[in-house]
Nucleic acid binder design. Structure first.
Lengths: 118, 118
DNA sequence: CCGTATCCGATGAGATACTG
DNA sequence: CAGTATCTCATCGGATACGG
């Protein structure tokens, strides 16, 4: 089906798609996933880089969120058998498809922030 | 300039987060807001219509979510001084600006669902 | 360096009953 | 019709300590 641009068609689809939104929110929602995803959007990062870069996140939460997103198929964990150990995280191909969504959400959020902080 | 009237649902840690995504999620996230927003996207609805249309939502949750989104400035509550009482909800102008974001989230979520259910 | 294991308080949300 | 008021329970996430 071709994408309908009329307001009515858009909105009729939206109602039935509220469950689609629920899927998206289940994958990207929560306290830390936005921070992690925004960073991995720019490229591969090591565990320690994420830990250092994301202010105040604990190991427990970082690991939990990474594992969940790995299970959801949007990020990949790559272990290098070295000493000292090295683990990298990156978006999967499926994860890459989220980037337009993440960008739209970031833009709207920043617009909203500017509005309420003036 | 003065912003004393709107104590929105955001908390401090999200305000300090550089990623706008956290703002968006604070506004549209949760168990019921997607369902409510998708419906209000295509027009004004009465309280009873939302209640009847959104399967399994309780009065408590419906009211809580509506009040929160009203505080956040994305929906407006309009009371008609009639008997029996009548209250309508609609997106504000700011709320209307969310529609592209909601649509992108719905589409990605549906794509994801199709992928994982095959 | 890259994690696990436990404990625990705060928050989200369902069930039920009542009201101007 | 359009809500309030309680109660209850599950999940989220913070703090701290330890491990290969």
């Amino acid at each position: 089906m071709r994408k309908e641009t009329s307001t009515n068609a858009l909105n009729e689809r939206m109602i039935n798609d509220s469950c689609g939104m629920a899927f998206s929110l289940a994958i990207i929602g929560g306290r830390w996933k936005p921070a992690i995803l925004c960073r991995l959007s720019y490229g591969t990062m090591r565990y320690g880089e994420l830990k250092k870069d994301i202010k105040d996140i604990s190991d427990r939460m970082l690991v939990a969120q990474l594992r969940e997103m790995e299970k959801d198929g949007i990020i990949k964990r790559i272990v290098f058998p070295e000493v000292p150990p090295r683990v990298e995280y990156r978006l999967t191909k499926l994860g890459q498809t989220m980037k337009p969504m993440l960008e739209v959400m970031s833009e709207w959020g920043n617009m909203y922030r500017n509005r309420i902080t003036n």
